[in-house]
Write a protein that binds this DNA or RNA. Structure first.
Lengths: 121, 121, 121, 121
DNA sequence: GTGGTCTAGACCACG
DNA sequence: GTGGTCTAGACCACG
């Protein structure tokens, strides 16, 4: 996993874990890697993983059984999607619209650009 | 001017100045406020303004004349828009597409949401 | 380290660090001193070191990992030499030629002077 | 006249005036432009021209007749060339040699580069 | 511990 | 007056 230098690593790890959960690598209620293992795998400080897990705990994506480990919450996928959706519609979208206005980019331009971008992939 | 706690003040000032230039408050080649004046006006340390101005110098938005002051560069508006456009198409758009995929949001959904958002205003 | 009064200290520090990297004190990818440590060693304000490091970041000589430190970039030596070479051929050389013309110094004179200078050492 | 932003304007003006004297625009003992006239011509602050002239007074390139104006000194051309020569051999040359060593540029390389540069003109 | 940012304030060359 | 640089020192998020 490559880290983007702009965002805090712990958030990038949290995000990555969410992606894995959505992709089905860790089903609802299933155990996620131990802090130590993940830290070794990602070559980061264990404290950083702890912070990621704590963050996901607060958001209801993970649950914790003391002394045993961290687990994907029941409905983790649903929770993640809800969180992302909320963030998307309440934060991203307004910012997007504002930027588009500032740059004179019409909705049509946007649609075309997305289309062009897709073809590039 | 109110500062957002999430972004560095010096970047917010830089951004704000770009907005003013685009809005025509400072035409191409026109002098922008002195470091000290702006610092007083924004109730910020002069060093912070220096940082904003230096940042904009590096990006070609401002120019400077020793002992005289800072000036909007020739084509400042064009430069700013180019910078923002580049950022939009190379950073924002890919992130947008990625998020949409993750959330199963179609281009049609997006367009509708933007439309709905517009009506709210 | 002694500082010359003519050039900004932060640039002198940056230059000095480049010399150390070229001399092999810090290999490609190796960690350079922390901002605080170097500030103490050079008896300089930490902010001044930050400025040096930021300058070298912008030039691709250093890289940084959040919360960990600054590192010599991969190919730091190559990058430094390229920067210096560019500066030499594009700035120094034209100035040299211009001065030589103004003083009626021929290429032969120059070569002889360099030779004489060498023997002095 | 275009000003290089890196060097103080007053030195650039002084240099420019020396060039004009060497080129014979102002013969030995001949009057140079008044401070006001030159300031208007160069679109700079009169104080800046005063500083240039004072600088050249100190170096014996100009002379001053109070209330009348500034004049090229007797032997101004000779003086200028001597100054430049001294600067060249005592400051520029050692720096040149040092840089060449650091960049592994041989005297032969230098000669070739100068030759190539000449042909470009 | 590490860097990132900011304040408060100083001194300087330059215009 | 104007920007450029520097010191002294603080607080913060992050690892």
């Amino acid at each position: 996993m490559q880290f983007d230098t702009n965002a805090p690593i712990y958030l990038q790890i949290a995000d990555h874990l969410c992606d894995l959960i959505i992709a089905g690598h860790y089903g609802d209620g299933e155990r996620v890697p131990s802090v130590r293992d993940l830290a070794v795998e990602l070559e980061v400080n264990p404290n950083t993983v702890v912070r990621s897990y704590t963050h996901l705990l607060e958001q209801g994506v993970l649950e914790n059984q003391r002394g045993i480990g961290y687990f994907a919450a029941k409905d983790a996928v649903k929770t993640i999607k809800a969180l992302k959706r909320t963030f998307f519609y309440q934060k991203k979208l307004p910012a997007l619209v504002k930027t588009m206005k500032a740059l004179d980019i019409s909705v049509e331009d946007l649609v075309n650009s997305i289309g062009a971008y897709h073809e590039t992939l």
